[in-house]
Nucleic acid binder design. Structure first.
Length: 877
RNA sequence: GCGGGCGUGGCGGAACCGGUAGACGCAACGGACUUAAAAUCCGUUGAGGGAAACCUCGUGGGGGUUCGAGUCCCUCCGCCCGCACCA
């Protein structure tokens, strides 16, 4: 026998008896096989029972599962198993978010085809996931890169296109000239491509857009009108900020003296949320991309040079923070709409964004930080028009700080004396009256660009024809399948689909002239925007079956990381609206309840040379860490999110090997509230293993108990104390699971176990009731152990099909309550009273208590506060 | 800069609606069993004082409301997250 084998065996043996203690390595696979054989978790529509759809965000098949996955799926599994036991028809599926760049990068590095790499990863991860013992209906599994999935995505896109949800338009993109691809903003680091390091260019490309801004108003409204009551406040807030609605005025400033700009214009349109400050206007500023700026740049080298300079300064956060407000004056002035004879200069300015509002503003330096900076730099007027409450109009002036608070208008003609809010309204009415503009609502949200110049994604079903323009691929020609390519094509930069004439060149479906396929593929966020509906109602002949989708949706409980709080969750909400409009389903809000779980963290380790070390290569002894191999000292670093770069990762597979799946599940849910980060420690996992063994040791001596005792009626001699503990635990654990307080549910189970162990003298009936409840209460957390215990006790069928225990109300009320008695707010004694005792009885008992008398000796009782069932407080002076 | 959250023993964390602060777990310490260790079981464990009974202090700091504050209000400090030149 090898040392390792010996060690492992010893782990599960006790010396005295030589008997095997609970051995998860044998027991866990046995029950997983049993669940499979029994098809225990297969789900179908069943209208006789209430449905419950629990879904965890599906994983990207990177190759290995990590503890973050385990935490996510363990939570969902607890809910799924709990809801099953509560009589719901539960849908709990799993699949793979399988398109995306990492597969192409792997192809570049290893020469493996993205498809082969992806499916191999799926196989490996599926095997690991299955070891966790999840109650999943694997028959519904798919990967988004399956043609059977993405062909229906193409169909949805065509439907959306027909229904007006799709638009093709030019837009600026981050273009990496070396990799010849578009980069997402997140992939641009300090103005350089994250992979190539090349300076990123801004390039105008025709791109496909989903017009999410059309739904901005409704997406926003649903956040606050109760439709998303089951979502965490912080996620709703993040979405609200992201959508970023602001109300204001869109208005035009006429050029003075009949001037005409090089592009033939006579006015410039701006957007403002502060029309009340119009009388304080000192300048107009337009974005470098603004048509007016571009028109001047075309004939004026200085303007052109300034614009180039603006574009050079990076788009990174740091660059924006540090960027100085800069402007370049255009040879044009505009007239003030209200003040005869006043004109305002027009600048191109680096801090104006073309993408927001009108791409142009009027600046009121007195009441805006940026405008003030700009005005001070270029020596423009600073005219205060909002007077802070209590300030004297004669002496109030603006120094280094603008005034942005409330107040009353002055220096403002017809607005004088109005509050800021009233003045905004009044100014808008006036501008509308003279035909110079209108009230306007703006959103920060931009339309969703879904084009990616990549191979490993769902092809966009469109064809470009010189005669007919862009035409949809006819539905009868779907799917547009990804063509076979040799893996070597990924070594050359650019989109491989561009270089495949045999695939790319097709006749136009309308006029039959030679045409080209769209070679862009969809952003992978498209794939993940409707997978939940496909799980519930997928069909071979349509994206989703409407009746089934309407039965299962919305997802009753969605669980995932908060990093998806904005993009994924917003896109999916939009997709549901589009799918409703195209009659694929009726639900608009796909996720009724959302839970965002915290991360799994671990201490980090560095050796003397500053190299990161894996936890498995470190030995901790008395708070000090050493290298396992050579004993050199190791520096214990901060506790951080597990990441490959810092090597503070622990492989779930190894932990399962060491402690079993139940112990991992138990520990990862026990230590922290689910929404917070949890620190993975080996000691904690070992502790969870101890608990698993302890439960088995508690249950095992009473094998067959469920056969020996009929639990349907308690005998007269049943022990009230243990029964009360049993039923109080049932009530508390039920509540805690319902409220996602897994850590508290687990603490309750520990307490109950402590009570159970001390109840040696308990009558066999009460003990059997307690054990039966215990096993069912732990089943969502430790499903394998629960099955083994259930079988040992002689329970009927599988515990995963057993009904959840219910608490008897009569056993939840206490016969007596212990009330603390305070004297002047300090606890001095306790009294035991009946819960129904009236205040005067309680007061008398409290005052009779010896300790109480001692503390009020010599004092006069001024007041006695009795809070029934809670506390007594005696005020004495 | 704007918005949100959090701060409780050596550690993770409990504490319903303002009512016994520290449940439960981890770690540590003591004991039993053992030739010994591991495992297991029993016990102790917020700080200070006291022989003990007990007493005092204690939820980031300061102040307030209240019979009573971890919880509510004001203020300061620290940490975390989101957004960010959004007009």
């Amino acid at each position: 026998m090898t040392m390792a084998a010996l060690k492992t065996r010893r782990f599960f043996l006790t010396k005295e008896t030589g008997m095997a203690r609970y051995n998860p390595k044998e027991i866990e696979p046995k029950w997983r096989k049993r669940w499979d054989d029994d098809k225990a978790f297969l789900t179908s529509v069943d209208r006789s029972r209430p449905k419950y759809y629990v879904l965890e965000m599906f994983p990207y098949p990177s190759g290995r599962i990590h503890l973050g996955h385990v935490r996510n799926y363990a939570m969902g599994d607890v809910i799924a198993r709990f809801k099953r036991a509560r009589g719901f028809n539960v849908l709990h599926p799993m699949g793979w978010d399988a398109f995306g760049l990492p597969a192409e990068n792997a192809a570049m590095q290893t020469g493996a085809h993205p498809r082969d790499w992806t499916y191999a990863n799926i196989e490996a991860m599926k095997r690991e996931l299955k070891q966790i013992g999840l109650a999943i209906d694997w028959s519904k599994e798919f990967a988004t890169c399956d043609v059977r999935y993405y062909r229906w995505q193409q169909k949805l896109f065509l439907d959306f296109w027909k229904a007006g949800f799709v638009e093709r338009r030019e837009s600026y993109v981050n273009w990496d000239p070396v990799d010849m691809t578009v980069l997402a903003n997140e992939q641009v680091i300090d103005g350089k491509g994250w992979r190539s390091g090349a300076a990123v260019e801004r390039k105008k490309l025709s791109q496909w857009f989903l017009k999410i801004t059309d739904k901005a108003e409704d997406l926003l409204a649903a956040l606050d009108d109760g439709r998303l009551a089951g979502w965490p406040d912080n996620v709703r807030l993040m979405q609200r900020n992201w959508i970023g609605k602001s109300k204001g005025l869109q208005m035009k400033f006429r050029f003075a003296g009949g001037m005409i700009s090089p592009d033939g214009g006579r006015e410039v349109e701006i957007y403002t949320t502060r029309p009340d400050t119009l009388f304080g206007a000192a300048f107009i500023a337009v974005a470098p991309d603004h048509p007016l700026a571009q028109a001047y740049a075309a004939r004026d080298k200085a303007v052109a040079a300034f614009i180039v300079e603006c574009q050079k300064s990076g788009t990174s956060q740091e660059a924006i923070d540090k960027a100085e407000k800069k402007g370049h004056r255009l040879p044009i002035v505009v007239v003030h709409p209200f003040v005869a004879g006043r004109t305002l200069p027009v600048y191109v300015a680096n801090f104006i964004l073309m993408g927001y509002g009108a791409g142009a503003i009027f600046g009121c330096p007195a009441h805006d930080r940026r405008d003030l900076d700009f005005a001070r730099k270029y020596g423009l007027d600073v005219i205060p028009v909002v007077l802070p409450p209590g300030e004297d109009p004669a002496s109030f002036s603006i120094g280094d700080e603008p005034y942005v608070g409330p107040g009353s208008l002055y220096n403002s003609g017809f607005l004088d004396g109005l509050s800021v809010d009233d003045a905004i309204e009044s100014a808008i009415r006036k501008i509308e009256g003279i035909g110079a503009g209108r009230a306007s609502t703006q959103f920060r949200l931009r339309d969703w660009g879904v084009s990616r110049q990549r191979y490993w994604g769902c092809p966009i079903p469109a064809i470009h024809c010189e005669n007919c323009g862009v035409v949809p691929v006819p539905e009868s020609d779907l799917p547009v399948e990804l063509p076979e390519v040799d893996a070597s094509v990924f070594k050359t930069p650019g989109n491989p689909l561009d270089g495949l004439p045999a695939w790319r060149d097709v006749p136009c479906p309308d006029c039959a002239a030679p045409a080209r396929r769209e070679t862009d593929t969809f952003d992978t966020f498209v794939d993940s925007s409707w997978y939940f509906a496909r799980f519930a109602a997928g069909r071979e002949d349509r994206p989703v079956d409407k009746a089934d989708a309407d039965y299962w949706l919305p997802v009753d409980q969605y669980i995932g990381g908060v990093e998806h709080a904005i993009l994924h969750l917003l896109y999916a909400r939009y997709f549901a609206r589009a799918m409703k409009a195209t009659e694929h389903m009726s639900v608009e809000e796909p996720f009724a309840n959302l839970f965002t779980q915290g991360m799994v963290t671990h201490a980090t380790y560095k050796d003397a040379k500053g190299r990161w070390l894996l936890p498995e290569d470190v030995v901790i002894d008395g708070g000090k860490a050493r290298r396992a191999d050579n004993g050199e000292p190791v520096v214990i670093g901060p506790i951080e999110k597990m990441s490959k770069s810092k090597k503070n990762v622990v492989s779930p597979e190894e932990i399962v090997e060491k402690y079993g799946a139940d112990a991992i599940r138990w520990f990862i849910l026990s230590d922290s509230p689910p929404e917070r980060d949890v620190e993975w420690t080996d000691a904690g996992a070992a502790g969870a293993w101890k608990l698993v063994a302890r439960i088995w040791d508690t249950v095992e001596p009473f094998a067959g108990a469920l056969k020996a005792h009929d639990l349907s009626m308690p005998p007269a001699a049943a022990e009230a104390g243990l029964r009360r503990a049993t039923h109080q635990t049932i009530a508390a654990v039920t509540d805690d699971i319902e409220e996602f307080r897994f850590n508290k549910a687990i603490a309750r189970i520990y307490e109950f176990l402590n009570v159970l162990k001390k109840a040696d003298a308990a009558d066999a009936w009460s003990r059997t009731e307690a054990l039966s409840a215990l096993v069912r209460l732990i089943a969502p957390f430790c499903p394998h152990l629960a099955e083994e215990c259930w079988a040992a006790l002689g329970g009927e069928g599988l515990v995963c099909n057993a009904v959840w225990p219910s608490a008897e109300a009569a056993l939840l009320v206490r016969e007596t309550v212990t009330l603390p008695v305070q004297v002047n707010g300090k606890r001095r004694a306790e009294i035991a009273v009946s819960p129904s005792a009236d205040a005067s009885t309680v007061e008398a008992l409290a005052l009779a208590e010896a300790e109480v008398r001692r503390h009020i000796g010599g004092l006069t009782v001024r007041k006695v506060v009795v809070v029934p069932g809670r506390i007594v407080n005696i005020v004495a002076t």
